[in-house]
């Protein structure tokens, strides 16, 4: 029961974070595009546009890191993981999950401190009419979410319910190449 609720909540978080990432990228594109168009067609430049694009990129980076952690999509060195037996791989993935959990807890802790500090000083972004702490919020939120994702990984390693690694086999790549795609 607890597991089912936890899984249901994690899926909800995943969908939300996916939405944030996808819309951030569409928004970066739109902001840069319309700002450039405005400048050249109508001699009208929004000074904050460049900073807004950077802010959205920061969201893209840190929330995307969570998505990748959930899907085992971060780049890693596969020299050993490709050849070890399943039992040892499960152990290694559990250990990595624990390291990730502790590291993200550390990061989350200091990120929230930074957010709080920035809120208290009341500093504004340099050209965008938003408080500066909105730049730090994605690290704090995403690191916290990554703690949750890491706990999930460790639990799954213990209960042997880890999903297979999304290894790129020669077949899937060959199929992609046939369709004219690299990814």
């Amino acid at each position: 029961m607890v597991v089912r609720i936890a899984n249901w909540m994690l899926r909800g978080i995943d969908a939300t974070v996916d939405f944030i990432c996808a819309t951030s990228l569409l928004a970066v594109t739109a902001v840069v595009f319309f700002n450039a168009m405005g400048r050249y067609l109508f001699s009208f430049a929004l000074v904050g546009a460049e900073e807004l694009a950077r802010l959205l990129t920061v969201y893209l980076c840190f929330f995307g890191a969570y998505v990748l952690l959930r899907r085992d999509g971060h780049v890693s060195v596969d020299i050993i993981t490709l050849v070890v037996p399943a039992g040892l791989l499960r152990l290694l993935r559990g250990v990595v999950g624990m390291v990730a959990g502790v590291t993200m807890l550390y990061l989350a802790w200091y990120s929230w401190q930074l957010v709080g500090f920035s809120m208290r000083t009341g500093q504004q972004a340099s050209t965008l009419p938003v408080p500066r702490y909105v730049f730090f919020l994605p690290v704090a939120v995403s690191a916290s979410l990554m703690v949750v994702a890491s706990v999930d990984k460790v639990v799954r390693a213990i209960t042997n319910t880890l999903p297979p690694l999304p290894g790129w086999t020669d077949e899937t790549v060959a199929a992609d190449a046939d369709k004219g795609k690299a990814r």
């Binding site: 990228l25 990129t57 893209l60 980076c61 929330f63 995307g64 998505v67 990748l68 780049v75 990814r183």
Partner: peptide, 11 residues
Amino acid sequence: ASAATIAVLMI
């Protein structure tokens, strides 16, 4: 999908 690729790099 692009966002995930971007995040690999940005992080």
